[in-house]
């Protein structure tokens, strides 16, 4: 098997290292259990908003803290783990296998970013499916769109961390830069929100919603029934605009991953 699928072999080694028994099992337990603590709040939200908005509020209840923990997991896997592997020469050892750099990059992407994101998806699906299955099935499109928006919230900062880890190549420095980037994204979002709220500029609104597609989706459904949540000014975005913001966010995240891949393929020299 090792000879036929060396990429799979490296993936197995990487997963065995990063997710030893019983770490994934404990994480699965916590990701499933923790959001359920907020179920009384979710029930209290029933009857307050339009059904679609209620579904998004319920999903956000389950994912707010979970997203933060996932970011920490990605920081540990990528900003610290990958950068340290590069520094200690482990990457060179991996690359002695008959695998291309692109395949190795894919392995790191799966184990470092996509598996933690799968935990978020699991958490939201368990929470919503267990407590409000009818609501989720009735508005399956909103549920899937919301799920993509929640994933986007993590995928974009993770792409920046990935790029930083490959470029910096040192565990400590990469970790610090990763945390700084995370704060920077949040600070920029907040500044855009304030500027948009005060000035009502269209451009600022578009940039803010592209960085926070979930906020656009929430705004879309909240304003539809007359609510006025804090937003970056202007009217509520239409559904197509929400989809465009979400696509834009994914395009930016993918562009960062592609930039990291290109750097890894052409310019990267292991220490």
């Amino acid at each position: 098997m090792g000879r036929r699928w060396p990429t799979l072999e490296i993936l197995a080694m990487d997963l065995k290292e990063a997710y030893r028994f019983p770490i994934p099992e404990i994480l699965a337990f916590l990701y499933a259990f923790f959001p359920l603590i907020f179920s009384p709040v979710a029930y209290a939200a029933m009857g307050l908003e339009a059904e679609e908005a209620r579904l998004l509020i319920i999903m956000s209840l389950s994912s707010s803290m979970i997203s933060f923990i996932t970011i920490i997991l990605i920081l540990k896997n990528i900003s610290y783990g990958l950068a340290n592997e590069i520094r200690k020469g482990l990457v060179q050892t991996y690359l002695t296998y008959p695998v291309g750099r692109a395949s190795f990059f894919l392995v790191k992407l799966i184990s470092g970013v996509l598996i933690p994101i799968a935990y978020i998806v699991l958490s939201i699906c368990v929470f919503t499916g267990l407590l409000f299955p009818d609501l989720a099935l009735k508005h399956l499109d909103v549920f899937l769109l919301g799920l993509l928006a929640f994933v986007a919230d993590v995928l974009l900062p993770a792409s920046l961390m990935f790029l930083a880890a490959i470029a910096v190549r040192r565990g400590g420095a990469s970790l610090a830069i990763g945390i700084a980037l995370l704060f920077a994204v949040n600070v920029i979002s907040s500044i855009l929100l304030m500027i948009g709220n005060i000035t009502g500029w269209e451009g600022v609104r578009h940039v803010y919603y592209t960085l926070n597609p979930l906020a656009a989706l929430m705004r879309h459904y909240s304003l539809a029934i007359g609510g006025t949540p804090l937003g970056p000014g202007g009217g509520a975005p239409t559904m197509w605009e929400c989809v465009a913001y979400l696509s834009g966010n994914y395009a930016i995240a993918i562009a960062f991953y592609v930039a990291a891949l290109i750097y890894f393929l052409r310019r990267f020299e292991p220490v």
Partner: peptide, 17 residues
């Protein structure tokens, strides 16, 4: 087996809750 253990962990979490 690892997927099975993950399923059992989630099952235990829901049961506890």
């Amino acid at each position: 087996a690892r997927f099975g253990l993950l399923a059992m962990a989630i099952s235990l979490a829901v049961l506890c809750a």
